[in-house]
């Protein structure tokens, strides 16, 4: 299996998922999934629709309860309570943006920094960093889609997370915006943040990620560097239906 070709990284992983299984009634959404993400590393999680990618994110966030397995951040099990994630330095963006559409851009970003001593300054810094300051006091729903994506990212980044979960960050973006997003993800990882991203845009994943984990029917079918995964016949079969003969 390709997992054997995964580059060896030293030190404890920041996020460690071990033997994770999630069942919905009789359906196995995740089956004995293990992966890890180290500090400063960008790991891509790919797979066909229904492979279990978002379920894995939801399990990490405590939104679904695993039937087996462990999830640890910095060696400590996650509490299984989504309200305590931010206190553990974990931030997440959602597939459908998940913005508070009745609030302004600034208020959306502030919501990512609840409980901070000076959330206003942090929010302004993040708005400036992502060129959103000019829109700060507009209702977020008035912004074009790519700008709303940036607001969702700003809300996740404002708390300076140590683990960032990005759920389809490139979805709906044009090529220029995707390139800028790639730079932002790499920059974020360079600050020491561990990044795990789910994405269908394969070119984006291959260009941004240090390692890629491929899920199919809830199981890890391949993992390794982008080049290793790209050459894996099991991945071709999962994505293209090509039968593996060797």
């Amino acid at each position: 299996m390709s997992a054997q070709m995964t580059p060896v990284r030293t030190g404890e992983p920041h996020l460690a998922v071990q033997g994770l299984s999630v069942r919905f009634g009789g359906l196995s959404a995740l089956d004995d999934v293990s992966l890890d993400v180290h500090e400063g590393e960008v790991v891509g999680l790919i797979g066909p629709n229904g492979a279990g990618k978002t379920t894995l994110f939801n399990a990490v966030c405590g939104l679904v309860r695993p039937s087996a397995g462990t999830i640890t951040v910095e060696g400590v099990p996650l509490p299984g309570d989504p309200t305590r994630l931010s206190a553990r330095g974990v931030a997440r963006t959602l597939q459908g943006l998940g913005l508070f559409r009745g609030l302004t851009v600034r208020e959306n970003v502030l919501a990512g920094r609840l409980g901070a001593t000076d959330p206003g300054t942090d929010a302004q810094r993040q708005l400036d960093a992502l060129d959103l300051a000019a829109h700060a006091d507009r209702p977020v729903g008035d912004l074009p889609y790519p700008e709303q994506k940036k607001v969702a990212l700003a809300r996740a980044l404002v708390a300076r997370p140590r683990l960032l979960l990005l759920d389809e960050p490139a979805g709906g973006l044009g090529s220029d915006d995707i390139a800028a997003l790639g730079d932002l993800v790499r920059h974020t990882a360079a600050t020491g943040c561990a990044v795990l991203l789910v994405e269908h845009h394969v070119d984006f994943v291959m260009s941004v990620c240090d390692r890629v984990v491929v899920l199919d029917f809830g199981r890890v079918i391949a993992s390794g560097t982008p080049d290793e995964v790209a050459g894996d016949p099991a991945v071709d079969e999962a994505y293209l239906g090509i039968e593996v003969t060797a």
């Binding site: 994630l85 508070f100 919501a111 409980g115």
Partner: peptide, 17 residues
């Protein structure tokens, strides 16, 4: 802000603490 956020999107609000 927490009350308004929770009113608009409770699940997302939980993820933000």
């Amino acid at each position: 802000l927490q009350m308004r956020a929770a009113a608009f999107a409770p699940e997302v609000s939980r993820l933000l603490g």
